[in-house]
């Protein structure tokens, strides 16, 4: 990590940790999730809540904490922008980016690189 990235991380990390409990995955999708960090989900889900969410809206794994994705859904409904992003299929996480600056990765386009075999399947109506 070069000096510019280290300096950027020095600003980005404490700021985003303080505000969003950010986990520094380096490929930020906060704007798509109602400003709720999905990496706080203990299952690392990037595409919505698992089937284990409790009736009171709390997490399957941490019964005393609200489900991150329940929060993401509710908060995203209140945002004026990016509301439809909750319906997008988010690609797999690139774990090499963990701990790097998502701001720099956004500018360089590094966080938008998909694995070469990642493509939406063709829709197949059956009836």
């Amino acid at each position: 990590m070069g000096v510019i990235e280290r300096m950027t991380v020095a600003v980005e990390k404490p700021l985003k940790e303080a505000i969003w409990d950010c986990r520094m995955c380096g490929q930020c999708i906060l704007h798509s999730t109602g400003l709720t960090c999905p990496m706080r989900c203990p299952k690392n889900l990037r595409n919505g809540p698992c089937g284990g969410v409790r009736a009171n809206g709390n997490c399957e794994v941490f019964p005393d904490r609200p489900c991150v994705w329940v929060q993401a859904w509710e908060r995203s409904r209140k945002l004026p922008l990016f509301r439809d992003h909750m319906h997008h299929v988010n690609p797999p996480v690139d774990w090499r980016l963990k701990g790097t600056s998502s701001w720099i990765n956004l500018v360089t386009g590094r966080d938008h690189k998909r694995p070469a075999g990642w493509a939406a399947p063709e829709s197949s109506a059956h009836a």
Binding site: L45, V89, N90, W118, A120, P121, E122
Partner: peptide, 18 residues
């Protein structure tokens, strides 16, 4: 939890279809 269930679905379809 390297990839999630939705990503796994798409990976399986890519194996099969492409």
């Amino acid at each position: 939890y390297d990839i999630d269930s939705l990503q796994l679905l798409q990976v399986a379809r890519n194996l099969r279809d492409r």
